[in-house]
Each structure stands twice: as structure tokens, then as C-alpha cells.
Design a binder for these strands. Structure first.
Lengths: 156, 156
DNA sequence: GCGATGTCGTTAACCGGTTATCGTTCTGCT
DNA sequence: AGCAGAACGATAACCGGTTAACGACATCGC
């Protein structure tokens, strides 16, 4: 098992578990915070816009949004001018989640990086950015071993 | 959105998409290669043993194994001595996947780290190991903000 | 104005994950 | 031998993801 892929995967799983626990304290599933963050940034986005911002597919957003409408954090309304479009809007409860959820994410970031010096953190960000950019480029270019394009850019 | 968590998450999604594409060329879903790897290492393991080795839950292994039995890569047989136990065994087809799948993972590792110098790679592994160890420790210790223990160690 | 094409959300089916629950079997103690 | 507790896998329900397909609506070109 290749070293970086293994370590990155294990770290990802651990970080996700921590983030899941942190979000759960606010009644959220991991991932819902990303959808909310997109609306905190600009309320009234369409599922397609959110999907692009969060780097998932539209059906993923639609399904998640359905549960979040039920939970009372967002509402769904058709666009006034284009009947194909639906727009998602934060409720007061959804707005109220912003400060505690962002604080929880910041706290988690501080906790997991507490063991790094400033230089180590900078080197980690720099190297990880290179890996991310390389991986992203591989995803968007046709591969020599197949006839079809790679899958679309995946980001989370 | 905190910087390292965001970058790590985006990188994780990109790497997983690449790995998924690579596994798909062999008919595998991402994750199934981990289960196979556990059996390549020691054939005849129980779902619980595989779950522990791969750091997921037993139901996850049971469900995945069901599909892999159907696909013809593994078979399931009861243990000879303990009727509670089931053991999963590689088929010839499952064995035959080892070399190409391991080669694909190694190739992917080489590709995504191609942009790093030796020092950068070493620094990345070192810092990421620290983050992983910190996150893992946070997962296994009771948190001051809640009464219950954190979720079990998550690894993938 | 009309038809072809593009855009959008919705739905279904699939996937790997999780927790909770249950029935069966095993182990250890009396 | 009998019982209580532990261990195990199976199942259900839930979750966030994916791809494929479809109907409705909008846009574009003739």
C-alpha cells in the first residue's frame, strides 16, 4: 500500500470522524455544513450553484437539501423568472447555526494542527497544495491509458 | 473555512476520485481494494478481522463482501470450529487482481507526488503523520465538552 | 413562430459508510 | 449442567456520495 495515499486516507478518515462529531453537536451531518456555508456566503443559490461551489453533484445537493428543509434550516422556492430553477434560502435557524458551526470548524483546525511548528504547517500546506493541484490536473485531462476523459473535478 | 481542513478535504476528494477511476478499470469500487488487500495479506479472515484491519465497521465489510461474492472475487464459508464465525476466502479471480491493483495504486502514488522534491515529500509525510496522530488521539480520548467518549478510531 | 438544442431539477439505482438491534453460538463461572 | 455474559455476523435504517435518465422550461437559429 503506497505510503502517502495510505497516510492521507487514514488522516482523512480521522479528520472526517472528528468533524462529524463536531457537526453532530449542532444536529448536522457532515457535509450539510458545506451546503450551509455556501448559503451563508450567498443566500438563495440554486442546487446547481451550490453543487458547483461545494464540488459535488446536483442530485447530492438536492437530496441533502431535502433533509435540511425538513430539519428547518433552509426553505426551497422557485425562481421568479425561470421556472426551471429552484432557490434555497436560509431560515433563521439556518442563519443562527453560522457562528457556532464556524467556531467549531476553527477549533478543530487549531486542535489538529497544534502539534506542528509554523514551518511544518507552511511546508504541509505547500506540499499538499502541490499534490492537490497535480491530482486535479490528472482528473481534468484525458488519460493516455483510456479513451475517455477522466471524471470531472472532484473537490470537497 | 479553515485552511488545512479545507485543503485536506479537497485533496482527499480528488485523490479518491483518481483512485476510484483506477479501481474501476479492474471492475472494483473504491474500498473493495482495501478488503482484497486484507485478504491478500492473510486469506480466510473473518469480517470482524477485516473490519479491524481496514478500520471500518463489520456491517460495512459484510455488505461489501456480499457484492464481492456475487462478483466472484471471494467466497464465504463458515469456520470449522466456531459456528459464529464466517471466513472470507479469495477466489482465483480475486488472487489474480492483486498484481494489477497494487501496480495501479503504486502508479497513482507516483503520479500525485511527481511534483514534490524528496525533501518536500519527507516534510509532508512527517507533518501529515503528526496531524494523523493528533486526530487519532482526539478521537480516542474523552472530550471535555461532552460526557461521552469520542467515536472509535477511524482509519481508511 | 417553430423546431432543435441546451439547461435545470428530480428521481431511481447504485455505492461505501455509520449506528442500533437481534438471534445464534461460545465461554466462563457456579 | 445451567445460566449469564460476551462474541459474532446479519439486517435494517440512516447518511452523503455517484451516474443515468427523464420531463419541463428556456434559448437559439431559421
Amino acid at each position: 500500500m503506497p505510503e502517502l495515499l495510505d497516510l492521507h486516507g487514514r488522516t482523512s478518515k480521522a479528520l472526517r470522524a472528528l468533524a462529524e462529531a463536531a457537526m453532530q453537536r449542532h444536529g448536522l451531518h457532515l457535509g450539510q455544513d458545506h451546503l450551509l456555508a455556501a448559503l451563508w456566503e450567498r443566500d438563495g443559490r440554486t442546487p446547481g450553484e451550490i453543487a458547483a461551489a461545494v464540488r459535488v453533484t446536483t442530485p447530492a445537493v438536492v437530496k441533502m437539501a431535502g433533509r435540511m428543509v425538513t430539519a428547518g434550516w433552509i426553505t426551497r422556492r422557485p425562481d421568479e423568472r425561470d421556472n426551471r430553477l429552484v432557490r434555497l434560502w436560509l431560515t433563521d435557524a439556518g442563519q443562527a447555526l453560522r457562528e457556532p458551526v464556524e467556531a467549531a470548524r476553527r477549533q478543530l483546525e487549531d486542535q489538529v494542527t497544534a502539534g506542528l511548528t509554523g514551518d511544518e504547517r507552511a511546508a504541509l500546506l505547500s506540499a499538499l497544495t502541490k499534490v492537490h493541484d497535480t491530482a486535479t490536473a490528472l482528473l481534468t485531462e484525458p488519460t493516455a491509458s483510456t479513451d475517455r476523459d477522466g471524471p470531472p473535478l472532484a473537490d470537497r
